[in-house]
Design a protein around this nucleic acid. Structure first.
Lengths: 134, 134
DNA sequence: CTGCGTGCAAATGGTTTGCATCCAC
DNA sequence: GTGGATGCAAACCATTTGCACGCAG
């Protein structure tokens, strides 16, 4: 029954817009990049609201919060776990467009951990930063 | 020639102790857990020094800095990339003690990224937190 | 009407940094 | 002696939070 989960949840223009903008791009924006995107539509939105909604959406599995190696967290409009490429120089994150089976661990080998989800991230240098180095 | 890399590098008691303590444990301590460990040996060490040295050591590949899903970064005395298990509740990180081949991406599929290193992290609930929930 | 969501601003918390001093080489 | 490393404290910066108001249901 999904109604149990949705009890008391409202659809504000802010929340709607944040999700729409995030799904629109193929980049993996940080919270304040999302803030900039949404501000073009709702100029008076606050950064706190953006954080609250990204939190809300990722806790419901509607979007993905990428932990990753960098300082800032990045968000992905595609909630299905899939491998990412991260640039160790500029922090940019791309989707890996190559079918790569996510590794799995037999439950009895998971050292007692449960509900395992696999995160795969390839860290390297993106073509743009590689070029700059020359 | 390793002397080129080591130009001007000194081995202070602080740096030595930080590395020794980190290698001694099988947990994956955060910077201030390392601070606590080292403070038992060098009480007047500063947190800044711990950060500077963990930075120094990981940039040289002597230890591993785990990006990971949590807020704080964790460090691993074993510099060889290997899969980790992370508890999404308490943030604890364990080594996966199960041989799992790290996925590889053919260079021509890496979307122009170079020097790729693979990070695999399984996120789930550790046995301790699972028990607490009951 | 209700109470969830928002805007604003202050607070947090991990990490970084400037600077004078210290000590490994 | 020299410059890399330290201790201390202030600065940073991404993120979180308290509070009064606004608006979706």
């Amino acid at each position: 029954m999904e109604s149990e989960d949705k009890k008391g949840v409202r659809l504000s223009r802010q929340r709607e817009t944040i999700l729409a903008e995030l799904c629109k791009v193929k980049t993996h924006p940080t919270a304040d990049e999302v803030y900039d995107m949404v501000r073009k539509i709702i100029p008076r939105i606050s950064l706190g609201t953006v954080y609250r909604n990204l939190d809300f959406l990722s806790s419901r599995g509607v979007v993905l919060r990428l932990g990753g190696a960098g300082t800032q967290k990045r968000f992905d409009g595609n909630p299905t776990p899939h491998p990412h490429l991260r640039c160790s120089v500029c922090g940019r994150v791309d989707d890996l467009e190559y079918p790569l089976p996510l590794p799995e661990v037999p439950v009895e080998q998971a050292m007692g951990y449960t509900d395992l989800r696999c995160d795969v991230e390839f860290v390297g240098i993106c073509p743009i930063c590689a070029r700059k180095k020359m």
